[in-house]
């Protein structure tokens, strides 16, 4: 895909720099690393390891021989066109699909043999219990061995509600919250589970642009503070480049990993950082847009 990079790209964002700049930046990526991350792929002893993953629904092949590795504390984004099996990948990792070929392991344990227990998931929709208040919804994510009536557990839930910026809404019902707030309850529920890997399935796709940016920054704050390993699926190239350490690009049906792009921008990131623009171009090229 990199060989095609001199082909004209039509990234939707206006881009001030020319192709030449992008080329040099891209060339420098595999060798030198200006950001804090050590040279990345593939991480040795990955928290999340996927190899040769193939998932079929009847005749349809949703994923075809996917290999991925995410290191501890790393933020991986998975982008791809609609129908490329991005969500299927997360469903496999979270244990919602137990029939597939190949291997998928979390913390060294196969997801079919309990590895998925170490995974928390934030769905595309908030999926909250309409009859329960925010506190109860977050507490749903508490691990099974935690006594929900224990004051310590309650404090932990309240602290998470604070963490996602919903202090004062613990007794609100989901119906009273905006879309962005509801999605943050869903994030807090995922964090309450204290997962080794937090999976995010296009969590911000239903939000307007401004709210989306707020939520992205908020997610980065939470991620930085807690050091959770994150794998996020999105169709938004800009979002992937802004948030992730590495971006896996899936091709259209059947889903295969076209390339993995390292995003070498230092954190905290500026949305107009040159390195982000370079990464975005590389991702869009790989997508064949």
């Amino acid at each position: 895909m990199l060989a095609d990079s001199d082909v004209e790209t039509d990234d939707d964002e206006g881009r001030p720099d020319g192709d030449a700049t992008t080329e040099t930046e891209r060339d420098s990526e595999p060798t030198t690393d200006p950001a804090t991350d050590p040279p990345t792929d593939p991480p040795t002893d990955p928290t999340l390891a996927v190899s040769g993953l193939t998932k079929r629904y009847g005749e349809t092949v949703a994923l075809d021989g996917v290999d991925l590795a995410v290191g501890d504390g790393e933020f991986l984004a998975v982008v791809g066109p609609s129908g490329c099996g991005k969500s299927t990948l997360l469903r496999v990792l979270s244990g919602l699909e137990d029939r597939f070929e190949g291997d998928a392991a979390v913390g060294g344990v196969d997801v079919r043999e309990g590895g998925s227990d170490a995974v928390g998931m934030v769905f595309q929709e908030p999926r909250l219990l309409a009859w329960a208040d925010v506190r109860e919804n977050v507490a749903l994510g508490l691990p099974a061995d935690v006594d929900r009536d224990d004051p310590a557990a309650r404090d932990r839930v309240d602290e998470l509600i604070e963490t996602v910026g919903l202090g004062g809404f613990a007794e609100s019902s989901p119906g009273e919250l905006s879309g962005g707030m509801a999605q943050r309850v869903s994030l807090a529920r995922g964090l309450a589970y204290e997962p080794e890997v937090l999976l995010l399935d296009e969590p911000f796709s239903a939000l307007d642009r401004l709210t989306k940016r707020e939520q992205q920054d908020h997610l980065l704050d939470v991620w930085a503070a807690r050091g959770t390993t994150v794998a996020m699926v999105t169709h938004d190239v800009e979002e992937a480049a802004y948030l992730a350490d590495r971006v896996a690009v899936l091709g259209a049906q059947p889903g295969t990993v076209e390339t993995v792009v390292d995003v070498d921008a230092a954190r905290p990131r500026d949305r107009t950082d040159e390195a982000l623009l370079a990464a975005r171009r590389e991702i869009t090229d790989a997508l064949g847009l």
Binding site: S94, G95, L96, S116, D117, V119, G120, M121, F123, E125, R127, L129, A132, L140, G141, P143, A144, R189, Y193
Partner: peptide, 19 residues
């Protein structure tokens, strides 16, 4: 959708019925 949430967060049969 909600049943999947219960499954992902390992509520177990009894808790998922109750909650």
């Amino acid at each position: 959708d909600l049943l999947e949430v219960a499954e992902v967060y390992d509520l177990g049969r009894v808790e998922s019925l109750r909650r």
